[in-house]
Amino acid sequence: MITTQPAYFTKYENLDFSRDQNGILEVRMHTKNASLIFTGKTHQDFVDAFYDISRDRDNRVVILTGTGDAWMDQIDFQSLGDVTNPREWDKIFWEGKKVLQNLLDIEVPVISAVNGPALLHTEYILTSDIILASENAVFQDMPHFNAGIVPGDGVHVLWPLVLGQSRGRYFLLTQEKLTVQQAHELGVVNEVLPSDKLMNRARELARQLAKQPTLTLRYTRVALTQHIKRLVNEGIGYGLALEGITATDLRNAQH
């Protein structure tokens, strides 16, 4: 039975952690206990947080979710700094690579419980093994084209992988907003649930998985993500470099 609480549980102001005796870790993203507003601080902190989760061998299943009515639908662009400055972008470049690599290095099953609109950093969701979504969820790549930059932070790898090359490119280029029903029909979402049933179902599946031996859980996650890890490692740096070129060109862009 797991009784200790790691130091990282209270380390991050935008993440709430809880873990039961079966090693099921719940990770809830929030801003002051409301829906998360993505900032430069969360961009930095999530790198370390997912690393901490990955190296904690008392974690046996992970549930990732949001707070309130949205999974993630707001971003504070100003907090990311001057993205037209190559030295500022270098920080984003490094963090953008590491956050996905650290997510995929979580070597236990990961369940995403998408509690509402997911309009940015949906690549986090697509690294999960099981994706549940509430009836009010929608999916979109909102921020990149709105800011005039390449969608190169991992969405360019994972959405075409999940939707297929043609549909995935269409999704990103048109900023298509998929309803949860469309996402389910296209195979992005595994189950659609009423909002008040979402976390109960995530916990039910987590308890079902937790009945397996720990090494079975760990090595199944390793086996199922090996292909995704290869694609992400090949594509993430290049995508972020292209995104960075367009970010540094914003000051000269003609609209």
Rank of each mutant, 00 (worst) to 15 (best):
Thr4Pro: 00
Thr4Val: 05
Ala7Gly: 11
Asp16Trp: 10
Phe17Ala: 09
Phe17Arg: 12
Ser18Asn: 09
Arg19Ser: 04
Ile24Cys: 01
Ile24Val: 05
Val27Leu: 15
Ala34Gln: 15
Leu36Phe: 10
Phe38Pro: 07
Thr42Ser: 07
Arg55Ile: 11
Asn59Tyr: 01
Arg60Asn: 11
Val61Thr: 09
Val62Lys: 02
Asp69Ala: 11
Met72His: 03
Asp76Trp: 01
Phe77Lys: 12
Val83His: 04
Glu88Phe: 02
Glu95Gly: 02
Gly96Ser: 00
Lys97Met: 11
Leu100Thr: 04
Leu103Gly: 03
Leu104Asn: 09
Asp105Lys: 11
Asp105Tyr: 05
Val114Trp: 02
Leu119Trp: 13
Thr122Glu: 13
Ile125Phe: 07
Leu126Ser: 01
Thr127Ile: 10
Phe145Arg: 13
Gly148Pro: 12
Gly154Cys: 01
Arg167Asn: 15
Arg169Cys: 03
Tyr170His: 15
Phe171Thr: 09
Thr179Ser: 15
Gln182Glu: 11
Gly187Lys: 07
Val188His: 02
Val192Thr: 01
Asn200Pro: 06
Glu204Ala: 09
Leu205Pro: 05
Ala206Ser: 06
Gln208Ser: 15
Ala210Gly: 00
Ala210Ile: 00
Lys211Val: 03
Gln212Gly: 06
Gln212Trp: 07
Pro213Cys: 07
Arg218Ile: 07
Leu224Ile: 00
Thr225Cys: 06
Gly235Asn: 08
Ile236Trp: 11
Gly237Val: 04
Ala241Thr: 08
Leu242His: 13
Asp249Glu: 14
Asn252Gly: 10
